[in-house]
Amino acid sequence: MVLLAGLAMTSPAVAQEAAPKHKPLAEDGLHDPDLPGVHMLQEPGDVLGHLPATTSGNLVDWNKAVRDGYIEPRATLLDRGEVKTLDLDIYLPNTGDAKVVRFPHLEHSEWLDCNNCHPVPFAEEVGATPMSMLEILMGEYCGICHGAVAFPLTECSRCHSVDYDDYLKIRDQQRR
């Protein structure tokens, strides 16, 4: 029975390798293949398959796609617009047994305006917004985007990325 359970638990990874990376819209379980419009739409595989890859979400490294010029998403409705980025890392050290979270403003400000996140849901002062992983998993704070449209919350190490000792060194450097 244990062996059977073990086999069943490894099967999703095997199935994912065998399946095409991006399902055609007519087979995605959401679109109705009997409706004529479905066959006029752009297929995700035709676009996403040509962008830098990751292993989760849309299987696209969206930041690399922008940084390396694969895509040039507009910053305003009508033209390319101006993108004001902020290169400032924020560290969240109260993470229990998990590694310290490094939040990079740089990648976020490529996509978002300051007022998308400030002052709601995040106060601008560091440490002024208490949040827990449970709330994030329930779709609050970081979980408004991560788990819905930005990379999912199964990618623990992409946020929890800094050893506590290294964090202490960074903090001491910043204080100097």
Binding site: P44, A75, L77, V83, L112, N115, V149
Partner: peptide
């Protein structure tokens, strides 16, 4: 995904637009 290739999040998700 289709819209994200063409527009940054803030275009649709900011009060200004």
């Amino acid at each position: 995904w289709f819209h994200r290739v063409r527009f940054r999040c803030k275009v649709c998700h900011s009060d200004s637009e």
